[in-house]
Amino acid sequence: MHLATDMHGSFGGGDISSILPDEVEVTIGILALQGAFIEHEHALQRLFMAPSFLRQRKGINWKFSTVQVRSTEDLERCSALIIPGGESTTIALLLRLSSLLEPLRAFSATKPIWGTCAGAILLAKEIANPKKGGQEVLGQVSVRIERNGWGSQVESFEAPLEVPKLRNPDEPFTGVFIRAPVILSLLDDKDAPIEEIARIPEDLLPAESCDTNTSKEDRHAQALVALRQGNHFLTTFHPELTEDDRFHEFFVVECVLDYVLKAKGKQRL
C-alpha cells in the first residue's frame, strides 16, 4: 500500500489503474478422469514458466494457473478446458458417472476447449464407428470422425508436421499418432468456418476408411490432423507427449485469451 501511495502522488493524483496493465487470471482446466492429463498439465506449466512466453499481451498482465477437473466445482473455476487423450468410451462413461456430462456440455457451448485424440472424438459432432450401443459426445465441432482410423497399435506412428501458424513455423512439429482418429469429412456449417491448422501428407492416410464412398473433397479433409472452429481446437495427435509446447501456446494465445477478453468486455457492458 505504501508503494501505491507514493506512486499515486508522483502521477499528480491520477488513477493508477489507468496506467498499469490490468491483471487478469486465467485458469485452464484439464479433464482428469482418465488418460494423459498430467502430461498436458506439465506442458502448460512448462509453457507458463518459459522465458519466450509473454505473460503481457494485449495490454494485460495475465496470471495463469491450471487445475485438474474431476467435478463440477473444478469445472466452474475454469476459463478453458483441455480434454486429453485416453479412451473416449471410458472418459464418456466417467463424465456421466461423475455428473459432469451436462455441465461440460453447457461449458463447451461457449468456452474454449481443446480435444486431443480421445478429446477430439468427444468434441466431434458425428462419430462414424462408435462403441456398439452408442457413445455420448459433446457435439461441438462440425466434423465426422472415425475412431482408431489407422487400425490397431501396430499402425501407430510419428510424422513431422508443417504448421505455419505456430511460433517458429519453419521448425516441423513431431506429430505422435497413437491409435489416432481420422477426420472423415467436414460437416456443413455456414455460421462457423473451420480453420485448417495442420495436415499430413495424403500418402500417410489409411488405405481405407469406414465410409466407402469417399469423394476427393473428403480425401482432402481426411489429411487434416489439427483444426479450429471458433473457440474449439482439435488435434488427432498428441502434442503433450513431446517436449515441444508450441501447440499449447497456440491454444492459450489464439483460443483462450481472445475469449477471456471478449467475455470480460461483455461483463463491463
Partner: peptide
C-alpha cells in the same frame, strides 16, 4: 520408418493411465 517407435509404444501406455 516411423511405425512402432518407442514414443508410440510408451505413448499408448500413457493414454491408459488413470484407467
Amino acid at each position: 520408418g516411423n511405425l512402432g517407435t518407442f514414443g508410440v509404444k510408451s505413448g499408448l501406455a500413457q493414454m491408459l493411465k488413470g484407467g
